[in-house]
Design a protein around this nucleic acid. Structure first.
Lengths: 329, 329
DNA sequence: CTGAAAGCGCTTACAG
DNA sequence: CTGAAAGCGCTTACAG
């Protein structure tokens, strides 16, 4: 900028005015400055500019895995909102490792991002307290923060599962299984709760061998499902607590002679092309990302309420066939 | 930092030393500085630091759509390489709009990212010339840059398609169709070329109604496929030029009485659960991202050759059933 | 309409 | 081992 000023024979501030299209520059002067800019190939250094303005016009997004379709869709929505507010997006994957989550978050804060959208991996987010006090707006997504009162945007996990299980009950099922993710994961716990509530609401007892929580590896899901199907009171329907479980369940059930009804939490591509097509409780991944990002910018613009908000987004039951199979005789 | 220095009763430079763990500070002094840091909740402002060091330790990734599984996997790989080099990742989706691509690229450059990984949307990247001259390392990915000599990492599109089509030929097919994306898209053109070459290598003529290029909307793909299947010389097998085409083809073919062989370019989740399971020519999305990012850091570390490199990654034919269906009698 | 000075929060190059 | 001065590339607050 100094070079431009020298070449155009003006002061620094005048170059700044032209670059920022501020008023109060003679067309003549502006033209001279512009010529110097073009000749020198000058491009404003936004990092320097932002050091002075104290707004970096960037937000950081920390999620579990950028390559996961659910988070990929969420990211894209956050990106779109950020763009509409003139902000750039940093992204980072925690790989479900609390240490890595913290590293990323603090790295973003060290860059002085204006705000943060975080899918929590850890259980204690008090490390963010000084950052939040320093003015970094933070919104949690998909799972609430641990030991910290902050904005959070969630899917209605319990409600969605209740709806899916009630759907199976409405189709005549009484013995319904549930296979979920690790019990420590918030979404997994909420979905299990929804399952229990739906069964209770219908006056149906839940036998301990009908539900299983744990890693979503194919081996473990298959073992859990086998146990449910081969017990003394075998289930006639399964509610799959997430995508991974659903896919394995599809494979296992396809190999069995008698049909078992299946409803899965979270939609996936080609669910409608399978035979039978898979009935799912669909989450709104872009919606979650959008709402979270909007809340973030509301905070940044100072138009959000003081207190932390908690938003639960509704799910959508999509009937495709697998969830409407009647109980085997 | 000034506050920390004042509180610890030392100079700025000493605080800087402690913060950066530089040697040459008495344990005693260091402890005093550290105490001040903790008391004040000081966190180094990396943006300011990087203004001075002239390295932002960040790279920008511009791709078509962060929510697309292929690009999501690619992004994750770029992120991992960036992390291993201590760099943060900006991401942005061009939505296949050249103007938006340029906006994003220039915004990243204005932040002075060290390097850029770009999936080109436009056809002319000369706008990057000044940036590259200014030292921004740039690697193109998935498609080559337009009118610019730069590093590029590609899938072996033509070779992969040759292999897939040859596979169909080896299974007895003589009349093979090809449905691809818009002819302007580099990957689409390359795959069409591979199809032609494989047919020619087997001495098979290609009738004009056997291949169709255009948007990958279900309507258009369905119409193209119908035309190929109902002509006077109907095809007995189809090579689908990408994911979207494959999915629509699966739907259309499932509704037909006689089986048609199908090989698709690019793998997708659940391809193995469909009936028949889908034979594909699989791209290595993480591999492409990794190789591109590695080339980027090689440039940044000054250990890359002067000339632009062109890398083509091999594909993998995965036989699952649909590609091994013999020609209908 | 225009510009000189100070400052954003750090590091670099020196001197002691 | 320690620190004062200058500077990274901009903007802010002022003065003319």
């Amino acid at each position: 900028m100094k070079d431009v000023a020298a070449r155009a024979g003006v002061g620094l501030k005048t170059v700044s005015r032209v670059v920022n299209e501020e008023p109060g520059v003679t067309p003549d002067t502006a033209a001279r400055v512009q010529a110097a800019i073009d000749a020198l190939g000058f491009r404003r250094n936004d990092s320097a500019r932002l050091l002075r303005t104290r707004r970096t016009a960037s937000v950081g997004l920390v999620l579990e895995d950028l390559a996961d379709p659910f988070y990929a869709a969420l990211s894209r929505a956050v990106e779109d909102v950020a763009r509409s507010h003139g902000a750039l997006l940093f992204t980072g994957s925690s790989a479900e490792d609390p240490r890595r989550e913290q590293e990323l978050v603090l790295a973003f804060c060290a860059r002085r991002v204006d705000g943060l959208v975080v899918v929590p991996a850890g259980e204690d987010h008090r490390y963010l307290l000084p950052e939040i006090a320093a003015g970094v707006a933070t919104v949690f997504v998909d799972r609430p923060a641990g030991r910290l009162d902050a904005d959070v945007v969630l899917t209605d996990n319990a409600g969605g599962t209740r709806e899916g299980v009630a759907h199976l009950i409405a189709h005549g099922h009484r013995r319904i299984g549930f296979i979920g993710d690790q019990p420590g994961i918030h979404t997994a716990g909420e979905r299990l709760r929804g399952y229990r509530e739906a069964m209770a609401a219908a006056g149906l007892a839940v036998r301990p061998e009908w539900y299983a929580m744990g890693p979503t590896t194919p081996e473990r899901v298959e073992a859990a499902l086998d146990a449910m199907l081969n017990g003394t009171e075998p289930v006639t329907a399964l509610f799959a607590g997430n995508n991974r479980v659903t896919v394995t369940a599809v494979r296992v059930l396809a190999a069995r002679p008698d049909p078992v009804a299946l409803v899965g939490f979270d939609d996936f591509e080609l669910a409608d092309v399978l035979d039978p097509a898979i009935t799912v409780v669909a989450q709104d991944a872009p919606g979650i990302g959008r709402v979270a990002a909007q809340q973030l910018f509301r905070r940044l613009d100072g138009i959000a309420a003081e207190e932390a908000t908690r938003t639960e987004l509704p799910v959508r039951l999509i009937e495709r066939g697998s969830g409407e199979i009647p109980p085997a005789r």
